Computed example of a mutant assay.
Amino acid sequence: MPEKGLKELFIDELKDLYNAENQLVKALPKLAKASEFPELKAGFEEHLEQTKGHVERLESIFVKLGEDPKGKKCKGMEGLVEEGAEAIEEYEGAVRDAALIGGAQRVEHYEMAGYGTVIAMAKQLGESSHAKLLEQTLEEEKETDAKLTSLSKKVNPTAADGQNQSKRVEASTKKTASHHAA
């Protein structure tokens, strides 16, 4: 097997990010549809448009490199998207929204790590114009993460209150049942 250098690794990592972003383009509408909190739904819809822009930036880099962006499956993103789909099935209401925010933040952190890696490689390879495009995406991912943190501060108390409500109903039902049994 021929030895591969940093340039080949850079291209391979870009392909991984390209696939990851395309997986998100498919997943974000499902997350938006599953969200009950209007700001979260709007946030997912806004990030969908932003993610399409991320795909376009990556495509422009591939054109300049003379490379095909396809050919790599991002298994990490596949797992994160799958976990998001499970949350949609397992939870409801504000608790589902809290789970979706947590899953989305894991996605953002995964992407931030990936973009940080390719930016460092681009700079090492002297690809400053590519690094600048990738840095724009990294900044948008950081902004999205911050928005998700802000939304979690609004959603989590509602999720906790709903859970406490159900515990109070459960406790009162048990008291009533034990009272009738006596």
Rank of each mutant, 00 (worst) to 15 (best):
116 G>Q: 00
71 G>L: 07
43 G>Y: 03
141 E>A: 00
49 E>Y: 04
52 K>Q: 11
51 T>W: 04
100 L>W: 00
76 G>L: 05
39 E>M: 11
93 G>V: 10
130 H>R: 06
58 L>A: 04
51 T>S: 04
135 E>A: 12
72 K>A: 13
78 E>A: 13
126 G>N: 02
151 L>F: 06
124 Q>D: 13
121 M>A: 09
75 K>H: 15
120 A>Y: 06
76 G>P: 05
53 G>H: 03
50 Q>Y: 06
102 G>M: 00
33 K>P: 07
85 A>Y: 15
44 F>D: 00
80 L>K: 06
127 E>R: 12
33 K>R: 14
90 E>S: 15
85 A>Q: 15
144 T>R: 03
70 K>H: 14
69 P>F: 06
111 E>S: 02
119 I>E: 02
68 D>C: 08
45 E>I: 08
32 A>I: 08
72 K>P: 08
41 K>E: 14
128 S>W: 12
57 R>L: 08
50 Q>A: 13
38 P>E: 12
149 T>M: 13
45 E>T: 12
76 G>V: 10
106 R>V: 11
97 D>G: 02
60 S>P: 07
145 D>C: 02
57 R>S: 05
72 K>S: 11
90 E>A: 15
152 S>R: 09
151 L>P: 00
119 I>P: 01
60 S>I: 07
108 E>A: 07
75 K>V: 15
63 V>P: 05
56 E>V: 08
147 K>Y: 09
132 K>S: 10
110 Y>P: 00
37 F>H: 14
50 Q>V: 13
104 A>K: 03
123 K>R: 14
113 A>R: 05
53 G>R: 00
83 E>D: 12
49 E>P: 06
52 K>V: 08
129 S>F: 09
41 K>Y: 10
121 M>V: 02
58 L>N: 00
125 L>T: 06
145 D>S: 07
59 E>H: 01
101 I>Y: 07
93 G>S: 09
114 G>D: 02
143 E>N: 09
26 K>R: 13
67 E>N: 02
137 T>H: 01
46 E>H: 12
128 S>G: 11
52 K>L: 08
118 V>Q: 01
151 L>G: 04
31 L>Q: 12
104 A>L: 03
88 I>A: 08
39 E>C: 04
101 I>V: 12
84 G>I: 02
82 E>H: 15
102 G>D: 03
42 A>D: 14
57 R>M: 09
42 A>K: 15
115 Y>I: 03
142 K>N: 03
84 G>W: 01
96 R>V: 10
104 A>G: 06
80 L>V: 01
82 E>A: 15
86 E>S: 14
140 E>R: 06
77 M>R: 06
112 M>F: 08
28 L>D: 07
151 L>V: 04
56 E>N: 11
34 A>T: 07
69 P>Y: 05
28 L>F: 10
76 G>A: 11
84 G>R: 04
117 T>M: 10
51 T>Q: 03
56 E>C: 07
106 R>I: 08
66 G>V: 05
104 A>Q: 05
43 G>P: 01
103 G>T: 03
43 G>L: 10
94 A>D: 11
43 G>C: 12
